[in-house]
Design a protein around this nucleic acid. Structure first.
Lengths: 210, 210
DNA sequence: ATTTTCTTTGACCATTTGGTCAGAATCAGT
DNA sequence: ACTGATTCTGACCAAATGGTCAAAGAAAAT
């Protein structure tokens, strides 16, 4: 019986369930990341997924559930790059490597990046819990690490929180403002994207080197 | 007759028209900047403005018209800071002053900032024309100026386009990701905001100083 | 005070939207 | 081939939404 779904949330039992929930999540990511929750209709998701609306609602009980399920599946992935920032190794390359990872992530997963951006723009209603319980503590830890590096004179004096904000801002920019960058860079778009990595490495190296 | 409206678009004729269109634009800014076009209903605008839905539609013929009118009114303002970047004076302080102006703008007009951000996130459909006809040429000019400074050895070697992208990204971040910053900084929120200015000035000074 | 113009609204309409449901179609195991 | 479980869909529903309109209420002009 289909009660199985309720238990093993998103862990599809049958072959066909697995295939379709994947389809739906994919479509939902595409649509939610462009239009936000309120701006998205189930029909749009259905069309994108190539399924009928009732069929979508066979796998998920409501629009809200799709949305929630989608966010939940991404939270861990989103923290990964920061988690890898560690006390060992050269502090400056630890940080520039983090920049690198973040940039790669937003270039490789622009839809995911936009989804988070749009959620936060809209007031972070659905992410409040996650931010407070997961992001906030992790951030505190890593800021402590950076502060430590500053105290030891291993990197130039910086406000660690603002450093991280600026890393988020610059790296995400390439995914979130993609359409603007495309319009502006025109032909040179591809080249531009790969220059970003060099530019940002330079930007943060100079900031941190005394 | 109310045909006057059609002619003098947004230039309200009577006292009462002026008052109400202002109310509506204000409310629309609030709502659109959070929810985007598709996520916003006329009723939400009406409620925010303290007017009835039909009354809103007495002043504007459709939701689309409100949205368009709103964007149009903001375009010029949005280019202002970049326009003031000029060949005279110390290049480094020209650029850091630009950062300053952009930051002030996004802190003073967070809703406007979010409105642009959300438009671009959603594909910039309504801004394509503006970007190509106004932003793009202005940007080309100012990038030329920065390149010139680089050639003359007045500032360190940088990719001018990426420099501007990173200025946009970092300054807008404070408005666009406001809710996240609030959640993370907690009590220290106000202090944090004023630290931003110092941090960013440092960031870009170091980048540009050889 | 009266007329004319401008403003506001309740009632209404067509379409869209989130969601349900009975039954048809398909699948998996036997 | 048969049977029970799973998957899918057309038809449907109630609420929300963009928008209209006739007529009531205020302002301004006379």
């Amino acid at each position: 019986m289909s009660l199985l779904k309720e238990n093993t949330n998103s862990q599809a039992a049958t072959r066909i369930q697995k295939k379709n929930t994947t389809k739906i999540m994919n479509a939902a990511l595409e649509v939610f990341s462009r239009n936000g929750f309120g701006g998205t209709t189930i029909d749009q998701i259905a069309k994108e997924a190539g399924l009928s609306k009732p069929n979508i609602l066979y796998y998920f009980t409501s629009k809200e559930e799709i949305h929630l399920s989608l966010l939940q599946g991404l939270l861990d992935k989103w923290l990964e790059p920061l988690k890898k920032l560690e006390p060992l190794g050269n502090p400056i390359s630890e940080i520039t490597d983090y920049v690198q990872r973040k940039l790669e992530m937003s270039q490789e997963f622009p839809r995911e990046s936009r989804l988070f951006a749009i959620e936060i723009l809209q007031g972070a209603e659905h992410l409040k819990e996650f931010i407070k319980s997961d992001l906030q503590p992790l951030l505190e830890e890593k800021c402590g690490l950076i502060d430590h590096w500053v105290e030891q004179g291993l990197i130039a004096k910086v406000d660690s929180l603002h450093l991280i904000f600026s890393i988020w801002a610059t790296t995400q920019h390439y995914a979130d403002f993609d359409s603007q960058i495309k319009l502006i860079s025109g032909e040179k778009y591809e080249t531009r994207q790969s220059d970003a990595s060099i530019y940002l490495k330079n930007l943060f190296s100079r900031l941190l080197t005394d």
